[in-house]
């Protein structure tokens, strides 16, 4: 097994790894936020319509 920073070109390897991980995190967060936002939005509009119907 290799030392963490002992590899040559460590800067390039780890910066590309960092880029990969950040895109993974951004994509995951984005997708799940989008889903929960859509859910919340639709629920809100349904409630709105129901309360409109009652009045």
């Amino acid at each position: 097994m290799m030392e963490f920073f002992a590899m040559d070109y460590a800067f390039y390897v780890y910066s590309s790894l960092l880029a990969f991980l950040s895109v993974i995190i951004i994509c995951t967060k984005d997708a799940f936020c989008h889903l929960s936002k859509t859910l919340g939005h639709i629920k809100n509009t349904i409630h709105q319509m129901e309360s409109d119907n009652e009045t």
Binding site: M7, D8, Y9, A10, Y12, V13, L17
Partner: peptide
Amino acid sequence: GDAFRIIYV
């Protein structure tokens, strides 16, 4: 050398 490891991402 170790630069090829970028291949994994």
